[in-house]
Design a protein around this nucleic acid. Structure first.
Length: 580
RNA sequence: GCUCCCGUAGUUCAACGGAUAGAAUGUGGGCCUCCGAAGCCCAAGAUCCAAGUUCGAUUCUUGGCGGGAGCACCA
């Protein structure tokens, strides 16, 4: 049991005599008062008042009166005092006892602090990282990868097994369009050195725009698509070569984002299977042929008609998604299977899941939707070519981070400057993309992303740098102080120490709830508050210059802070820095 | 037309139906002889409108108004 659970259990034991059986309800009711002066934990008496036919104020008064006597006769470990404030019974925690238990817990569990052992361990698949080849990887994909990755981390921290899956769309109309424009307008051209996939993305945008203006080209595009499908040597070779350009780029992006997939599925590999499933659905009467196309009639369920195959026989997303679902279930036994895709696909997934149900697949599939990333002037579109590529964005943030770092550390060697700037930039980018709720669209604003003050990734890293600074000096100074024999002072007497202890204690609960609700923003926001709490402690409670007894205690607290912030940042994938 | 999401300080975000609606940023003021000022402290500043449910509504329901997104062979 974690320390905070033990504290709460103690409060509940105190309360349960008074209240009766609804113990489980009590745990959920315990809240934090708005201000620490009111107490550390609060129990609202409104529901009880209703049952007892008294005013909440009276009930709170009665309960706190009885509990106070009880505490006088039989002192408890964690709870020092009970006081009623209006309709609430508020509990005050004994800081020194909390410190003793909590610091021991953090020191012994260390990197595992905040992770849980699930009562029933489940296998949960998380699919994310679904870029299309022949298009650029942009900041919209970035949000997808970061959300999927952090959700995977959280589920793991909650004690479950996670299977991370990437699904690459390496076929389809977009590919044919890109190759068409390549042969038509750029034949014999050598792509610029380095990022070949950006070159492809530009050509794709060019193709899309030209086709919009002159739809005559469509026939040629369709012919190319058919040739690739039929295995035409020349076109297949070109497809394979350019596909590999994109895949190499994706691999390097995933790698620098720290995304590790257990398996990668490719649309091109399951397309045939998808077509067979569609045939099967037609045979079984679940799908129908209409105007040559295959569709499932879901109009009676307000889900419209769901098209599974074009009338020219080529496949759609729906075609291959049927096969993908089957493939996942074949490869893994899953308790749950999440698909992280932006909210615009919600309706599509309803159709897909319903179709799978009708087909008799028992899939624990769930679409995890998040709002997309837009630009101030409107939505990004690979077709229009008005995208912000991940690489450009990242380079700009690194540039700013380097300027900031240089201005503070003129003596640092270039390698150290580069490494630090990179770490700061990744922190800034990740915090910016993760601290919003998933149902909040992000209107991309570069000035917010390159800001390193306030609620930002670098601010979180800064607390670690300060922790590191204190620990380093603390080791050197450690013995000296004791020799001097400076006496006096008592640990755990300031409000800032206690507040920091309580915040650290809450961390496992925050991880659990962020994992349970699949909300990375919960954790991101908590870590900012934790950093803030630490800064307040830092300003008001000197560590190294404190009397020995206090210094030893505060050093332990600072070290624990480092552990917890380090663990939290790791879950968000934010690199820790020792100096910045 | 139908469906989904969102309307909270100038701006960007918080707030399991609960106490005085919190932060960040920006603005104004203060704090480096003392563990790192990418920091801390102080001040001003907000729940779109109307009904309903409730002891209690930013939160739930209904109806407006405003913004974004989706809706049959795009991905």
């Amino acid at each position: 049991m974690t320390t905070i659970e033990r504290v709460k259990s103690e409060i509940i034991r105190l309360l349960e005599d008074m209240v009766g059986r609804e113990i489980e309800l009590l745990r959920d009711q315990l809240t934090a008062p708005p201000s620490p002066t009111l107490g550390d934990f609060a129990f609202p008496c409104f529901p009880l008042a209703k049952v007892m036919g008294k005013s909440p104020r009276e009930v709170a008064d009665d309960i706190s009166g009885i509990l106070r006597h009880k505490l006088e006769d039989h002192p408890n470990r964690f709870i020092a005092d009970v006081r009623n404030v209006g309709p609430y019974v508020n509990f005050f925690v004994q800081a020194d006892v909390l410190a003793k238990e909590l610091l021991r817990e953090i020191e012994s569990t260390s990197k595992r602090f905040g992770t849980a052992v699930a009562k029933r361990k489940q296998s949960i698949m998380v699919e994310y990282g679904q870029p299309n080849t022949h298009k650029e990887f942009h900041i919209g994909h970035l949000r997808n990868v970061l959300v999927g990755q952090v959700i995977s981390n959280l589920i793991k921290a909650a004690g479950h097994r996670v299977i991370q899956v990437s699904y690459i769309n390496d076929k389809g109309a977009a590919v044919a369009k890109c190759l068409w424009a390549m042969e038509r307008f750029h034949r014999g051209q050598r792509p610029p050195a380095g990022n070949h996939s950006a070159y492809l993305g530009k050509i794709y945008a060019e193709a899309a725009q030209k086709l919009e203006k002159n739809p005559e080209g469509e026939a040629e595009v369709r012919s190319i698509a058919r040739k690739i499908a039929a295995g035409d040597r020349k076109w297949v070779a070109l497809w394979k070569k350019t596909r590999e350009w994109s895949l190499a780029d994706f691999r390097s992006v995933f790698n620098e984002l720290g995304a590790r997939f257990d398996v990668t599925y490719y649309e091109s590999e399951i397309e045939k299977k998808g077509q067979r499933i569609v045939n099967d659905l037609v045979r079984r009467g679940i799908a129908k042929i209409k105007d040559g196309a295959v569709m499932v009639d879901l109009t009676s369920e307000k889900l419209d008609e769901f098209v599974l195959r074009r009338k020219d026989g080529t496949s759609l997303y729906s075609t291959t998604d049927l096969a993908l679902a089957e493939r996942k279930a074949k490869d893994y036994r899953l308790d749950e299977s999440l698909i992280v895709v932006d909210v615009r696909q919600s309706f599509y997934f309803k159709q897909l899941f319903r179709t799978l149900e009708l087909a008799g697949y028992k899939q624990p599939l769930r679409h995890l939707a998040y709002e997309f990333v837009t630009l101030p002037e409107g939505s990004m579109s690979s077709r229009k070519g008005n995208i912000v590529s991940y690489q450009d964005f990242r380079d700009e943030v690194i540039g700013r981070a380097r300027e900031e770092t240089v201005s503070r550390h003129r003596d640092w060697p270039a390698r150290k400057l580069d490494a630090t700037a990179r770490a700061l930039a990744m922190a800034a980018i990740r915090y910016e993309m993760l601290h919003y709720d998933l149902d909040r669209p992000i209107v991309f604003d570069i000035s917010r992303a390159v800001s390193f003050e306030g609620a930002t990734g670098p601010y979180l890293q800064y607390t670690l740098a300060r922790v590191n600074g204190i620990m380093k000096k603390g080791k050197k100074k450690g013995r000296k102080g004791e020799e001097k024999g400076k006496k006096g002072g008592r640990a755990w007497e300031t409000g800032e120490e206690k507040r920091l202890l309580l915040a650290l204690a809450r961390y496992p609960e925050v991880v659990a709830s962020a994992a349970g609700d699949l909300r990375p923003s919960h954790l991101a926001q908590f870590l900012f508050e934790l950093a803030k709490t630490f800064s307040e402690f830092y300003e008001s409670a000197p560590v190294l210059s404190a009397p020995p007894a206090v210094r030893v205690s505060r050093l332990r607290l600072v070290r624990a802070m480092g552990v917890v912030m380090g663990n939290g940042l790791a879950l968000l994938g934010i690199p820790a820095v020792r100096e910045m």
